[in-house]
Nucleic acid binder design. Structure first.
Lengths: 341, 341
DNA sequence: ATTTTCATTGACAGCGCTGTCATCGCCATG
DNA sequence: CATGGCGATGACAGCGCTGTCAATGAAAAT
């Protein structure tokens, strides 16, 4: 059982070798392997055969350096802890891959400093563009992105003025829509339960939308509780337990920063024998599959995350082709009435 | 509201300009910005100041081409649909980032052809190494990886003979452990409910482990049901409903390919008024947070996914430093007794 | 038959950086 | 005071590829 030799003098096959084997010049081989235009069919075949025979793997770094665009796309996400950004990433990767592009990934953990450093690092790979779900970005970050001269697609929220292009939904409008739904159903007592909001500008925007919506009917949150740490099922479960230790349930509608929190809250109600929505009403956000598979489907707002990823990729690719897509693309959201509020 | 000028003649700052501004040669500037060794403190400061003043962003493609290693790591995952690989990716990214490396991501969708194409593509970026959670890999894939001369870390399962290095757990042993747990608790009727198994070699390995464990007490699955599509909460819910349309629940223990399926099944039981584990016992796999936050914690096996990602990264980095870590690293697993079986 | 056109091919330079080796002082040593 | 050693710096070449423009020859046009 010996490890394959680390191949210290690794003599990688180069384009020059392929060209020699095919009996043509380097540049002709290069063209044959790319455009295929302006190359005689016979030559084309020879070059392809030689490449195949030698197991040639092009060196795209050299290619990108020499002239072509890089075909790598920097992707900066604030988190991979719940499925939200995993969904976005999936949509992104699929579409980029189809176009022969690949994501270089960075996760900022909602830390503006880390985000800035990350962007600086990723930019040094000279990507063709950048897709970012911003944390509370620093001024330096914005300047760097603007000055990079690259297409920049900011995803998730379309309300803040984009540096270049935005793809997502109006987080604020989503918040308002949920508030309207809840007040429309007759609820008059409200609480908010979220993860650490300071770091997550979109959760904050939704909260503000909720507040604005409640204010429309002169209602307000009795309590806004934010817990440290990323949103998660256990956090929602613990959170609701803590909240209900202080507040009478009767007719209280609780809004969550994310479906996973709401699902955890639902579990608490099940375990504590509380009727939903009779004793407590629960409203989530994102329309995750898990919420819809609950015995009672969760009241939520579908956020079409894979769509955001896909559209972000398409928008970026369009800009790379020199087109001028809209500065701001609203992929919308949909209220899911569910049965928990 | 005008888009920032696409900067057609984008004159990016180069090392040469920094060197000129600092009044030193290119190579000295290069050294100052990297090693900092063998550079006079005064020169060092001048170069750094110049770089800062010019907003210099190094071009690592050129750097990698010229000599240094690439500091990009190809990462190939079969899916991002459930949190399993998102967790792994998170662990990977964190550790790689700390070491100044970045993942280039590819998702194979459990398709061997796509996986092979993906690897070919990613290899053309001349990464420093590759981390892969293999689908049912083709012979071509294995050859390509072996001949690449790069460190290759295969993650998730340590049973198949690794091309180079493996980090994960014994999927088969995990299956056996669960079987032993269930038979030990007295269950004698068993069923298996999974997602499309043909494409997922690890789920298959676990199933075989389960079978082997059951065989130890002369038991076997009454039914092995695999549903098309990736594992998900709704799929588990529908799946159990379908299964119980054919099988009497009384004392049946159902094993799932993943916790999300089991959680869906739990929801079905709640909705259908079935007692768990009285009428049906449920056993998942992976120890996802959601399963543990259920009113009754799910019987499962914790698979330490972020740990796998972190260890995979560390192993790769160690190989890049020229060390010789073990060929196979077992991060283990832990049975979670839970309360559903 | 002569000129024009076009498809095909190649020579050359250079992308931005780093490894290698040479050079230059300056200091400590005898 | 001569010598060796060493820290600091730079010249040069080249990583593997592609854009640009020129050269070639054969087909098309006159």
């Amino acid at each position: 059982m010996s490890r394959p030799p680390p191949d210290p003098a690794e003599p990688r096959v180069t384009l020059a070798q392929v060209a020699r084997a095919a009996g043509v010049s380097e540049i002709t081989a290069s063209r044959a392997l790319r455009d295929a235009a302006n190359v005689a069919p016979r030559t084309l075949e020879q070059v392809r055969a030689a490449a195949r025979a030698l197991d040639y793997v092009p060196n795209r770094m050299a290619g990108a350096l020499a002239g072509g665009a890089s075909r790598q796309v920097a992707v900066v996400l604030p988190s991979l802890s719940n499925s939200v950004f995993a969904d976005v990433l999936r949509g992104l990767e699929t579409r980029l891959d189809h176009a022969g592009h690949h994501p270089i990934l960075g996760v900022s953990n909602y830390d503006p400093e880390q985000e800035e450093r990350l962007i600086r690092d990723l930019l040094s790979w000279r990507p063709a563009g950048i897709v970012i779900a911003p944390a509370a970005s620093t001024e330096g970050t914005r300047r760097m992105l603007a000055q990079s001269g690259l297409p920049v697609v900011e995803i998730m929220d379309i309300d803040p003025p984009p540096i270049d292009t935005a793809v997502g939904l109006s987080q604020r409008a989503a918040g308002r829509a949920m508030a309207a739904h809840l007040t429309g159903r007759g609820y008059r007592r409200f609480a908010y339960l979220g993860h650490d909001i300071a770091a997550d500008p979109r959760a904050l925007a939704r909260l503000e939308g909720l507040r604005a919506g409640l204010a429309d009917v002169r209602a307000r949150f009795e309590e806004v509780l934010t817990l440290p740490g990323p949103s998660s099922v256990p956090l929602g479960r613990e959170g609701l337990a803590a909240l209900l230790a202080r507040r009478a349930p009767g007719g209280l509608a609780v809004c969550f920063s994310n479906d996973d929190m709401a699902v955890g809250a639902m579990f608490h109600c099940m375990a504590a024998g509380l009727a939903v929505p009779g004793d407590v009403a629960l409203a989530g956000f994102n329309g995750l599959a898990i919420g819809q598979a609950l015995p009672q489907p969760l009241t939520s707002i579908a956020s079409m995350r894979d769509r955001i990823g896909a559209v972000a990729a398409d928008t970026l690719l369009a800009r790379l082709r020199g087109e001028e897509p809209a500065r701001s693309i609203d992929v919308g959201f949909a209220l899911i009435p569910g049965a928990t509020a």
